[in-house]
Write a protein that binds this DNA or RNA. Structure first.
Lengths: 146, 146
DNA sequence: GTATAACTTGGAGTCAGCTCCAAGTCAATC
DNA sequence: GATTGACTTGGAGCTGACTCCAAGTTATAC
């Protein structure tokens, strides 16, 4: 039996999951600890095992992190990706439209920086009011080193 | 003499600067403390006074923060906005083009989230591989509460 | 001359999000 | 049955970016 077959049957170890998602083992455990991920299935009542669906969820977390969402704020999105019917939760629906709006503003903000850089490169002088955004400054992702 | 005239002549107090830039007083002092802002001019060797140029610099900081840049990473940009001739520093020039590239990737990433949200709203199912980005996950802004 | 207000400083505390560690379990190999 | 390796847990420590505080100064208002 190949490794791939084994994975389909028994799932991925935390190490393999870390490799496949790019999320460190410690961080995966941390996400479980804070309840961002559901308690993982266990093998012999100790080692965690993950399914492809679990990996997709982790990839979604990485993805939402890139948009600057806090771990707390992404909880509803993660539920969403499981019990799929959005229209049943109008409150959630609105939250998401709201976040979409914020992302669009972020995009606009980023675009202004790109413009600023381009102007700077072409000319050499910076006009004032480079970036005036309607939204707040909150809700953006953090940086990681290493 | 009006307040506006007084500002032109003697500059803005830290309080006024905070109001005009939206950056809290403590944070302005913090930026000076870590050397992100140059040591402010003093009045009677104590109170800080700021010029319009100083305010522009602070607005640029806010703006760059929105793009997810760390305070450390924005130092070269801040120098850039002062001693304007970019072409004299090829190293810096490259750094900036580099960052521009990252911002474009961020924009792409955010756009994918928007697409994901739209798809989610229309259909209700999420196809896998929602967001695969070439760049790293680092270099994004932090969130603030309150 | 005293109270008030706006500032100054240095340093401590906070928060999110990890990241690391020590001590322990458990299965497989030598 | 001892060693090895991959895991487990709880909890401590770390980093960036603030945010708050206490103690002191200085100018103006009463």
């Amino acid at each position: 039996m190949s490794l791939a077959d084994a994975n389909i049957i028994q799932g991925y170890s935390i190490k393999e999951t870390a490799e496949r998602t790019g999320i460190p083992e410690d961080t995966i455990r941390y996400y479980e600890k804070i309840g961002l991920l559901p308690r993982a299935q266990r093998k012999g009542n100790s080692h965690r095992i993950y399914s492809d669906q679990d990996l997709e969820m982790m990839k979604l977390i990485s993805c939402l992190k890139k948009t600057g969402m806090s771990l707390d704020d992404m909880r509803p999105y993660l539920n969403l990706s499981l019990d799929s019917d959005l229209s049943e939760y109008p409150e959630l629906h609105e939250m998401i439209l709201n976040h979409k709006q914020k992302i669009l503003e972020q995009i606009a903000s980023l675009q202004q920086i790109v413009d600023f850089i381009d102007t700077k490169i072409e000319h050499g002088n910076l006009g004032p009011q480079t970036c005036e955004l309607t939204g707040d400054t909150r809700k953006m992702p953090e940086r990681r080193k290493r």
